[in-house]
């Protein structure tokens, strides 16, 4: 127990400080505090989904820097399908399918053709940007509107927490569940053990009869679904329309979140909340008119946090050993 405490003392300390500050501000300005926290959760959702995609890929030994592209194209396709059919569910499924398809193409390039994974990921990003910009039409709307807000009964009435966690839209709830699902799959199931062994020493997995290619394909496709969900969240739940470049670097921030979260879904959630919180604070500050003449400086906050965190805290994190290396039997 004391071992756990020393190991996680910084995490525990951060959480305590955070809770204390929140309680303090909530005492004076409950409305604003709640708004910032709710916004933090909303902002963290696409990061969580993108980073979960990253963790599925990287734990199996494939670097995926194409998350940005997967999210962007999924947001686009999801929106187009939802707009054309009038069905949000169809749009979400189309978004996930797009992400999965892009995951499969990344697998094709990096597992079957054994190409460079960074280049393969870059290809996805460029393709997604080009395709979504080329086919994008101004003026399309969602006949059904955004995904609806769902209150979870009496839980929603809790002070502060109720508003933040229990009055949300469906994909936000889903992402909160998926964090635990991915964690469970990776660390409790047979597939997770296979994934981690393939990501560490693929030849060892192969010699006990595990197909490295199958594990990597499956994880890249499953990860693609998650990134696709993140894209669908942006266009169908957060905004309700599609804009060019609407991911705005979130796919890359998701990679930082994944590293800061140490390739662990629960760590990822914490990291995503931190970035989400930074974004929410930034929005709130702009809203209040701080530095109104130079809003760019406020806009920088989440990215500065990102850089500081990556530079300062990640030193000890250890990525999966086989990451980035194509595997062949010989």
């Amino acid at each position: 127990m004391s071992n756990l405490f020393t190991r996680y003392r910084w995490v525990i300390l951060t959480i305590l400080v955070f809770v204390f500050v929140t309680l303090f501000t909530a005492e004076f300005q409950q409305a604003q505090t709640t708004a910032v926290l709710a916004s933090a959760l909303r902002q963290s959702t696409p990061l969580v989904l993108g980073a979960l995609c990253g963790v599925m890929c990287e734990r199996s030994g494939v670097v995926n820097i194409g998350i940005e592209g997967q999210m962007l194209l999924s947001a686009f396709v999801g929106f187009m399908v939802a707009s054309a059919t009038g069905s949000l569910i169809a749009g979400i499924i189309a978004g996930m399918a797009t992400g999965a398809l892009m995951g499969a193409s990344l697998a094709g390039l990096s597992v079957t053709l054994q190409g460079d994974q960074i280049i393969a990921g870059t290809v996805l990003n460029i393709a997604a940007f080009g395709i979504s910009s080329y086919f994008f039409q101004q003026g399309l709307t969602l006949p059904s509107g955004k995904t609806p807000q769902v209150s979870l009964g009496p839980l929603a009435d809790l002070p502060v927490i109720g508003r933040v966690f229990f009055i949300n839209r469906p994909l936000t709830y889903l992402s909160l569940i998926l964090i635990w699902v991915v964690w469970f799959v990776l660390f409790r199931t047979r597939w997770g053990l296979w994934t981690r062994s393939v990501g560490e020493v693929p030849s060892a997995a192969e010699t006990v009869g595990i197909s490295v290619a199958r594990v990597r394909y499956t994880n890249l496709i499953a990860g693609g679904c998650l990134a696709g969900l993140g894209g669908a969240y942006l266009s169908l739940e957060a905004v309700g329309s599609f804009e060019r470049m609407m991911t705005n670097g979130r796919g890359f921030v998701a990679l930082a979140v994944m590293i800061f979260g140490r390739w662990n879904p629960i760590g990822i959630w914490g990291a995503a909340l931190l970035f989400g919180y930074a974004s929410a604070v930034q929005t709130q500050l702009q809203f209040r008119g701080w530095l109104a003449d130079d809003p760019q400086f406020i806009g920088m906050i989440p990215y500065v946090v990102c850089i500081i965190v990556l530079a300062g805290f990640v030193g000890r994190a250890r990525p999966p050993a086989a990451i980035g290396q194509p595997y062949s039997r010989e």
Binding site: R188, T189, R190, G192, L193, W194, R196, S197, E200, V201, S203, A204, A205, T207, V208, G209, I210, A321
Partner: peptide, 26 residues
């Protein structure tokens, strides 16, 4: 050249590929 996964435990390495499971959990 040992075909072992260094970050996994002895037990995990031994059963890798033929894991005993209980309701889907290793």
């Amino acid at each position: 050249h040992f075909q072992l996964v260094p970050v996994l435990t002895v037990a995990e390495n031994v059963v890798l590929g033929d894991e005993p499971t209980r309701r889907g959990v290793v």
